[in-house]
Design a protein around this nucleic acid. Sequence first.
DNA 1: CAGTGGTCTAGACCACTGG
DNA 2: CAGTGGTCTAGACCACTGC
Lengths: 266, 266
Amino acid sequence: MNSSVTPTPSSTQAASSATPPVLAEAPAFSPLYQQIKDLILQGLRLDEWKPGEAIPSEIELATRYHVSQGTVRKAIDELAAENLLVRRQGKGTFVATHSEDHVQYRFLKLMPDQGSASEEGPAQRTVIECKRVRANAEVAKSLALRTGDSVLFVRRVLSFGGVPTILEDMWLPGAAFKNLTAEQMTTYQGPTYALFEKVFGVRMLRAEEKLKAVCPLPDQAKLLEVTPSTPLLSVERLAFTYNDAPIELRRCLYLTDTHHYRNDLN
Amino acid sequence: MNSSVTPTPSSTQAASSATPPVLAEAPAFSPLYQQIKDLILQGLRLDEWKPGEAIPSEIELATRYHVSQGTVRKAIDELAAENLLVRRQGKGTFVATHSEDHVQYRFLKLMPDQGSASEEGPAQRTVIECKRVRANAEVAKSLALRTGDSVLFVRRVLSFGGVPTILEDMWLPGAAFKNLTAEQMTTYQGPTYALFEKVFGVRMLRAEEKLKAVCPLPDQAKLLEVTPSTPLLSVERLAFTYNDAPIELRRCLYLTDTHHYRNDLN
DNA sequence: CAGTGGTCTAGACCACTGG
DNA sequence: CAGTGGTCTAGACCACTGC
């Protein structure tokens, strides 16, 4: 029944060699749904379906890949759990997007102490710098580049109700973000990751953050309009796109006197 | 086929009243697997199976509840995703525990900047205080108690390699933690939540944390052996047990010069 | 009403564990 | 080897959406 995919790379083999190589990894049994998942993933990477669009129905995918609907379901289930796809009953399954997402600013965990983020509204953005620089050793290592490679550097301040609250330094691989300008960063309405997605075709899928408490350097203190002895939340974020490729390094300072970083543990 | 459970509270009804009450919530369609999930959850709450033990096999549960194995599977899948159960192929499905968990210290996100948490080993614990007090308004509200209710208060310092790194203040409902003593807190080997689980039958299932950057009060600075101007990571944690009941309030200060709080965003 | 995702079933077979 | 969870199928029916 399976013409284009096979359930197991090992199951149909006639056991021939009595002594498999000792150092060989486990035969890596890969279930069918995992292969279907990879095929859908490939379609996403190659932009077969664009963010916000619907992918084919489960039945159609099942037909295309010569598997049952249940197998396609399991593949989509996992992709939905990873926030790459969004299921909507009665309508279809859609490619996740940072634009129309009801869960906008998915990666911003800073909340006002009182009230909700939606009441507070989006932050005002002030771009301080936006220039092309050469990656130092640290930035290069994080972004899997070589020292001296071209990267885009952006520094900006985010304010809530006129109060400077976040200072962000971002480094982006020069190759993927050819013509990013301060003007784009300033005028674009909506999440920055939506801009990256629409203009550069770069999708942020997941991120790792490292938090510390620090005091700002003099120039940082000035931009946030605080004294250098003010304790600030330092958030270093490394964001990843397909294939777990690092695509953005971000170093932020959060003023946490009226806001907090919220995290849910399961 | 379903004698003890019904797939839908509304589907088998003969439509009689033409005008259902306008204010009524949606008929709350509840799938079968959700009801099975609730039944298993109830078994867990009533300690039908204890932490670390296996629950009945899928087939046995299917027979018991008069549903198919697939339906039981989906229920267990969700409970496993919530870390209440742990599946082990070939062996069975087990009640999650903070004791033997390979993922010990599930809720502690503080990592050494260099190396891994396992290399560093567990922290040395020093209990500063352990006493019964009356809940103030703030603590009472967090723990869903009344102001003045009896609560247990514990203050301790955790050190890594002799360096005081974490100062923890904990508040626990007096009713659930009758005879908790400083000695227990000091001598028990393993995660604190394992002690709570074994001795008091209280299971921490999930938690919410709010992070800020702060400077310590004089007494806090002394215990952590830092100056009052040292920026520290303030972590307020509210932990929940079954029925989303709050069961522990914890206010911590993390020294983050050689450690960081790690968070993964999806 | 047709089309989509969501639930449920019954049965077959596979991979893994431990005696 | 028996028992467990894991995969896969084919088919039925339900709930939701939008025309």
